[in-house]
Simulated scan of single mutants.
Amino acid sequence: MAGDKLPRSVSQTRVELPPDLTASAPTKPSHYVFVPLEGFTMMCLASAVDALRIANRMSGADLYSWEMVGEEGGTVRCSAGITFVMDRDLSEVGRDDTVLVVGGVNVAQASNKRIVSWLRREARRGITVGGLCTASYTLAIAGLLDGKRATIHWENHDSFAEDFPDINLTKSVFTVDGKRVTTAGGTAEVDLMLHIIARDHGEDLASLVADQMIYSSIRTDQDTQRLSIPTRIGVRHPRLSQVIREMEQNIEEPVSPSLLAADVGMSTRQLERLFRRYLNRSPKRYYMELRLGKARNLLMQTDMSIINVALACGFTSPSHFSKCYRAQYGTTPYRERGAKATPTE
């Protein structure tokens, strides 16, 4: 009820459940330690915590408990400008606890030496550690994802892949690889927590939690983050989607329009007409926009040199890259780099 102050791990009202969900509660709740970084995304934290709260409510038992910890305790401000009060500072956590770092904007600055050192120390103790949203970056610079499967928000995918080549980066909504967990941000935290609830207490309870959250399509770690190409471009044309998919997969070494057309059984002229009809631009122009979009992400989110950014996006000439970039964005790559941002959501 509005205005009621509820303990974090205590259910509001018991709901009538099927017999298999009314078994006795565990002797000790599974405990989650959330570490919101400065500028964290509120949706990620809220989605994760509320899934645990609802699991407690629907089961009528304290299956989960949680707390928020920060570098100095005190407060942490989210990207929406709201300040959250931490429960304590970065002291040692329980051996059976799960640590989930919550990222957001300016994650590189927020991932300072103290937080990174603390994560390394806790990981050495065998603690399960996760990164929600852009906090995959925090785990990566701590060396906790080397050789592991991981994911991050699609906007940061290109720069992350360049910075951490030893990490098996996927486009999944979430990944669980041993004691390392990562999510893509947004509502992916709901999917992760439903996965955890199902693992711990069964699919029926996870489904009840999803229903309470009006979450009608539960995704797994096999589902990808972004909408399908037909949905994104607003056109359901199989050969057009196939060509665009081929373009997206070949940014560093662009494929000629004639080969793209041949791969889908069309002439170059037919492919031109298809793009003009549905996307109001030529295949060459569309491909250029994809390449320049990746280039802009790399310039804004990495320390790669201008020439390496150009090469990663299929430009062999720095002058040609600069000319195309200026035509698209009204500024040069060098000036864009001068206003460089860090990985954000």
Rank of each mutant, 00 (worst) to 15 (best):
R291I: 04
Q301T: 14
Q225H: 07
F174H: 00
M300K: 10
R236D: 04
V190W: 08
I251D: 06
E246P: 01
R77T: 05
A142T: 01
R337G: 08
I197C: 02
G202Q: 04
T224C: 10
S319G: 04
R120Y: 15
A327E: 11
G3L: 12
G330H: 09
Q301S: 07
M1N: 12
L290Y: 08
V102H: 01
P238R: 05
R120T: 08
G73W: 06
E122D: 03
T83E: 09
S111Q: 06
E72W: 12
A150F: 13
R326Y: 08
G3D: 10
L52N: 00
L227C: 04
D303L: 15
M247K: 02
A188G: 02
C133V: 10
T182G: 08
S267A: 13
R245C: 04
T231E: 04
Y334R: 09
D146F: 11
A295H: 01
E189C: 04
Y287F: 15
V264N: 13
T138L: 04
A61P: 11
T175D: 03
T13G: 12
I167F: 02
R276A: 00
T224V: 06
Y329C: 03
V105H: 12
S79F: 10
R77D: 02
R236S: 07
G126A: 13
P18K: 08
S172I: 01
S117W: 11
E38H: 14
M304R: 03
A80K: 13
C313K: 00
Y286G: 03
L119F: 02
P19Q: 15
Q109L: 14
A108C: 10
E67W: 07
Q109P: 09
T128K: 14
H157P: 00
K5R: 12
S282Y: 15
S79G: 05
I152V: 09
V10N: 11
G234L: 12
D62G: 12
L145R: 06
L240T: 02
T138R: 02
V190Q: 03
M1E: 03
N168A: 13
R281G: 04
V116T: 03
S217L: 14
L144R: 01
F40E: 04
L6D: 15
V49L: 07
G330A: 07
G143D: 02
N308Y: 11
E122W: 07
L271M: 08
K148W: 13
A161Y: 10
G74W: 07
I244N: 11
T344D: 09
A312W: 10
Q212N: 14
I229N: 05
A339H: 09
R57F: 13
S207C: 06
M1T: 15
D62N: 08
P19D: 03
Y287A: 06
Q301F: 13
R149Q: 05
R326E: 08
D146G: 09
S91A: 13
E38V: 06
G185S: 06
T138H: 00
Y32N: 09
N106G: 11
G178N: 10
S65Q: 00
A206I: 09
K284H: 14
V93F: 15
L169D: 06
P318M: 14
S317V: 05
N106F: 06
F34V: 05
A61L: 10
G126K: 02
P230L: 10
